[in-house]
């Protein structure tokens, strides 16, 4: 079956989360022991209880949901770091604070399945929300800079790009059409308008 047209315009947030689960690694602290396991994306293990080990996020999620490990949050997913970034985000109105490219997806997975592994999850959640709002305000301001050629948006995360994608791509397409249309000399345009007015009325 061909992909439905609405999915062709932009991936779904759930699809981006799937990709983040696949492409991000996470440290876990196993609560069990298991020999090495060979998966298509690589070999992992051996797992020993309480010895931290790095696995793809989807493996961590699977084990966490079975109560077989705790997840260790990435270095940026904590109150201090996010507070610092929020400050930076507010004090530098001209640029986006550098967050990991998939920060939205990864933090969502952590807060969804492992809030007990994140210190002060409620505070983290609200900081992420504040960050999102400050960044969205910047995005809205930045829209004024859009032209038919190029727009630099360094610092945006993958989920933020995805949100903007349908609108920005259409907008740029429309501006391209406008820019490529030959300009009608003002006088001619006025005359035509005047003539048709005379004829019509």
């Amino acid at each position: 079956m061909a992909l439905p047209a609405n999915l062709m315009r932009s991936p779904l947030p759930a699809e981006l989360e799937f990709i983040a689960l696949q492409q991000t690694d996470v440290l876990i602290r196993p609560h069990f022991s298991m020999g090495k396991i060979r998966l298509l994306s690589g070999s992992y293990g051996p797992f020993r209880a309480t010895a931290n080990i790095e696995v793809p996020l989807w493996v961590g999620k699977y084990m966490k949901q079975q109560g077989k490990c705790s997840l260790i949050p990435p270095v940026w997913l904590n109150v201090e770091w996010l507070e610092e970034k929020l400050k930076q985000e507010i004090s530098r109105p001209e640029e986006f604070a550098p967050l990991p490219f998939r920060f939205a997806e990864v933090s969502k997975v952590f807060l969804d399945i492992a809030p007990d592994d994140v210190p002060s999850p409620e505070r983290v959640r609200s900081l992420l929300k504040d960050l999102r709002e400050v960044r969205q305000a910047k995005t809205r301001k930045g829209l004024a800079l859009l032209d038919e050629m190029e727009l630099r948006m360094t610092g945006l995360g993958s989920m933020e790009i995805n949100e903007l994608r349908p609108f920005l791509i259409r907008a740029m397409g429309a501006m391209r059409v406008l820019a490529s249309e030959p300009e009608v000399p003002a006088s001619t345009a006025d005359n035509t308008f005047a003539t048709s007015m005379d004829d019509g009325w």
């Binding site: 640029e95 800079l145 050629m149 630099r152």
Partner: peptide, 13 residues
């Protein structure tokens, strides 16, 4: 052409 960020942008080392 538009430059969203004023500075040369963030660099993660």
């Amino acid at each position: 052409m538009a430059d969203w960020n004023a500075a040369s942008g963030p660099s993660w080392s």
